[in-house]
């Protein structure tokens, strides 16, 4: 059944085909113009990740949720499918972004050998995963918000929640600074270099898991 639901959303998203191609071309041009190759994956990942969530709008406009609940499925599968789609979009966005960056950078180097761009693959991977993490955070907040308040209101509530998180984060940072902790920066940088990526990926998994649990709890009791 999840496969059927995924197909439904992918067919709906196919109307974005032209937009995605234009965005990818635009990103390519931006990379050529600015040579800021690390931004490509972040931008593409963000756009693809956000487009995936627009399937909630299609469902809301057609009032599809009621009909879907009448099909041989249950609320758990319906929520699960949305997360599979969201996570898939983030991964696809990351891969597309890396591929586009490599293709564009190599194309520039081919046509303009006098001013070569050196691709730092490690740095490219780090920024891509960083970008994916950012999109995951937004999705992890946005999906339960949509289940709670609907596709339109949920977007506004998501920004409120995101802002609240930033304020809390900044508050914690401020308190740490006030507490005068002595942090050995060298140790910290070494730790980040060693475990940063693993930590980011682990955090992404935890965020999605917690978000899924919250979404299911909301949707389980929601009246359609």
């Amino acid at each position: 059944m999840i496969k059927g639901l995924l197909k439904k959303d992918l067919y709906n998203l196919s109307s974005y085909k032209a937009s995605i191609i234009i965005i990818v071309l635009f990103c390519g041009i931006a990379i050529v113009g600015t040579e800021a190759i690390n931004w490509g994956p972040i931008i593409i990942c963000t756009i693809v990740g956000m487009i995936a969530l627009s399937t909630f709008n299609y469902d809301e406009i057609a009032k599809s949720n009621k009909y879907i609940l009448a099909l041989p499925t249950n609320r758990k599968e319906i929520v699960k499918e949305k997360y599979i789609l969201a996570i898939g979009a983030v991964i696809l966005g990351g891969i597309l972004g890396i591929l586009l960056t490599i293709i564009v950078a190599n194309a520039i180097n081919y046509f303009r050998p006098e001013n070569m761009i050196n691709i730092n693959y490690e740095s490219l991977l780090t920024t891509t995963i960083g970008g994916m993490w950012g999109v995951s955070l937004i999705q992890a907040i946005q999906i339960p918000s949509i289940y709670k308040w609907g596709a339109e209101k949920g977007r506004i509530q998501m920004f409120v929640l995101l802002f609240a998180l930033i304020v809390i984060g900044a508050g914690i940072g401020f308190l740490i600074a006030q507490a005068n902790f002595s942090i050995d920066m060298e140790v910290l940088i070494e730790f980040i270099n060693k475990f940063g990526l693993i930590l980011l990926v682990a955090l992404m998994i935890v965020m999605y898991y917690v978000s899924y649990k919250i979404s299911y709890k909301i949707y389980k009791n929601k009246e359609e």
Partner: peptide, 18 residues
């Protein structure tokens, strides 16, 4: 309530198969 208006009858067939 039904599936989205941006689908076709062919899409509906493909979805319902699964």
């Amino acid at each position: 309530s039904f599936l989205s208006d941006y689908l076709t009858a062919k899409h509906v067939n493909s979805i319902m198969k699964d």
